[in-house]
Design a protein around this nucleic acid. Structure first.
Lengths: 251, 251
DNA sequence: GAGTCAAATAATTTCGAAAATTATATCCAC
DNA sequence: GTGGATATAATTTTCGAAATTATTTGACTC
């Protein structure tokens, strides 16, 4: 039975927000965080109940997620969470390195004092979280993880924010999302934490020194190491799930 | 063996087509071709009548177009055709050059005989159309123009088709659409035809010789020359529309 | 006249269910 | 049992109107 009065209480600060938009964000987070499994069917009625929305905003949200490469669809057959694969991991990682280094180069060339301050602030935030992270490395407390994800995202975004190229930023954001999704698989599997603070610090220092070459090299190293860790986790997962042969297609 | 390889009767274009999908394509074409003016408001009821669809598939189509950067929206205020600007033209052109040259490099490295044949076929198609184009250069017959657009799109797509990177291709397609939209503005304004066959031939020859450096250089030249022509057309348009001062921002 | 508020109007967003399509089960001949 | 047709069920897609939100209009005050 459904609730009698679905309260559409207006929270302060949520102006101009639509149900379709909030549902889009919720679904996106649930896919990236792995709450909705890769490759799984997204049944409309079920989702409409779970997220307490009608068909229209739900389909709108799923359509946007298709553009983000987080959902795939087949006409008249519905929607699925986009599958993950080792091939795509390599693909995403390589293209992200290309885009992100280009954006970082531009940002280091064009960034002013305001940019520097924003990057420093984001780095300090991230450092504070990373400092208290090794203690909880084994537990991987979800709220702390979410905090770190947010700070990590903000740090990498701040670095390239002065690129002066909205198009490049748009593509970078897309690829960052993909990378985050793959990275979280690795966390969910191995539950081991790789200390990345030194890598972040190296990128930060190089950027503040306006050493574009070093900053891009450090970024490439950071990305390739992370991709390598994810690759190992996914291989372990595949071997664990199906030691003999490949598994059947989604039907 | 396994009957899993059931040949899909789902050929793209016949089965699995939804109203939302066809409406998406029609709207996309109308925006890129300039039939729907840049910056203009997209009133839902009007569009629903014009395209003879209901609200659901219409909004789904518009939502997809947002992901293509062809439509912008503000919550509770509706949709607009994405505006065009000189700044974005430069931005799109630069990022496209980056992506397209990377993809071309990869394709030249990885392309096999099948790729070569496909590129040659696309080039021949395009050449045949371009050969009979100068005669109608002043008229710019719409059907011929559409043929050329299709062939040009196919040629550039074929060149990078062997890159082996679906993600790169996805980004390239996005940027190609943007470029085509800007280029069509130039055509609608100046109504003059720039002979680009030599540039296409140079890219084609370099690709067939597997000379990646030359092919990317020729591509960069081709793109920058086109962008320059569009820039001039847009400046003429702006000066024509508003001789006195700068034009108002979209808001 | 400029500014403010409230009512009226216009437009967008969302719901709920019917219509259309695909998937699954059932039956029958062989 | 197997294959094929048919009926049933499950699911997606679409429509049309209700609910919500934005914008305009007009009266009123300062």
């Amino acid at each position: 039975m459904k609730q009698g009065g679905t309260d559409r209480t207006e929270e302060p600060g949520t102006v101009g927000r639509t149900l379709a938009d909030t549902t889009y964000r919720r679904l996106r987070h649930d896919i990236i965080a792995g709450r909705l499994a890769a490759g799984s069917k997204l049944k409309l009625e079920g989702l409409a109940n779970e997220y307490a929305v009608g068909m229209s905003p739900l389909r709108e949200a799923l359509t946007r997620l298709m553009g983000d490469l987080l959902v795939v669809s087949e006409g008249q057959r519905g929607f699925w969470v986009a599958p993950l694969s080792l091939e795509e991991l390599d693909d995403v990682s390589r293209v992200r390195a290309l885009i992100e280094t280009e954006a970082l180069n531009l940002a280091i060339r064009h960034g002013d004092a305001v940019w520097e301050a924003a990057v420093r602030r984001a780095f300090d935030d991230l450092s504070a979280i990373e400092a208290r992270l090794p203690q909880t490395a084994d537990a991987l407390d979800p709220p702390v993880l979410e905090d770190w994800e947010r700070a990590n995202r903000a740090f990498h975004a701040a670095l390239v924010s002065a690129s002066g190229s909205p198009v490049l930023i748009k593509l970078r954001d897309l690829l960052y999302q993909q990378s985050e999704r793959y990275r979280r698989v690795s966390l969910n599997v191995s539950r081991r934490w790789r200390n990345v603070h030194d890598e972040h610090a190296a990128i930060f220092d190089a950027a503040m020194e306006r050493n574009a070459l070093k900053a891009t090299r450090m970024t490439e190293l950071h990305l390739s190491r992370t991709a390598e860790e994810v690759r190992r986790a996914m291989q372990a997962l595949a071997a664990d799930a199906n030691p003999a042969t490949n598994r059947p297609e989604t039907r």
